[in-house]
């Protein structure tokens, strides 16, 4: 048995997992080979040394803290899911209430549109004075225009008379 083979069997040898004949052959090799013997020693002592890895004690209030966390978690869990089973149970009622909501909304919208013509009338009534004002202004303008026209007509009709009066005035000025 060569060194490579023995080294591959060393852990099994240390754990007592080898068959007796193989174990005997490994032991014979170790008695003769210093390198493999040292390898075996290192494997053994390093494994032993691992036990020196000490661990501190867990804190005394570990269980109390844990139970506090669990109770807190439970209360949060209850808060979150408090109404869920209730609403799950009442799924049909919820669906019905939803449908009822839609119907009510439809009725509301209908009445909104149904009332709109009267609203427009009311609006028109409210706006009417403004229309009246503008209408009266338009009428006044027409009257003024008509008065102007009448004045012009009157002037034209009396034009000869005016010219005569103008001529008399001019004559009087010349004589004086």
């Amino acid at each position: 048995m060569n060194c490579q083979k023995v080294k591959s069997l060393l852990i099994g040898f240390l754990n007592g997992e080898l068959e007796e004949n193989i174990r005997k052959r490994v032991r014979e090799h170790l008695d003769l080979c210093a390198d493999c013997s040292r390898e075996k020693e290192l494997l053994s002592t390093s494994w032993q040394l691992m036990l020196d890895h000490s661990v501190p004690r867990v804190s005394e209030n570990f269980t109390a803290d844990l139970m506090k966390k669990i109770r807190l978690g439970q209360s949060e869990h209850i808060k979150v899911t408090f109404n869920l089973p209730f609403f799950r149970g009442l799924f049909g009622v919820r669906a019905l209430s939803g449908a009822l909501g839609f119907v009510l909304a439809g009725v509301f919208v209908f009445f909104m549109f149904w009332k709109s013509p009267s609203n427009n009338q009311e609006l028109a009534q409210k706006i009417q004075p403004d229309y009246q004002i503008s209408e009266s202004i338009a009428n006044d303008e027409e009257i003024i225009k008509n008065l102007d026209i009448l004045e012009d007509i009157e002037l034209l009709e009396n034009l000869s008379l005016l010219t005569e009066m103008q001529a008399i005035e001019n004559f009087e000025e010349e004589t004086t």
Binding site: V55, S59, F62
Partner: peptide
């Protein structure tokens, strides 16, 4: 089992506080 769980977590992370937090998580 608290010490057993803590030992495993402590050896895995080499940190006292982390090991204790993990131990609590395990029991939760």
């Amino acid at each position: 089992h608290k010490q057993r769980v803590f030992n495993l977590a402590y050896r895995f992370f080499s940190d006292y506080q982390q090991a204790e937090d993990i131990s609590q998580q395990v029991f939760i």
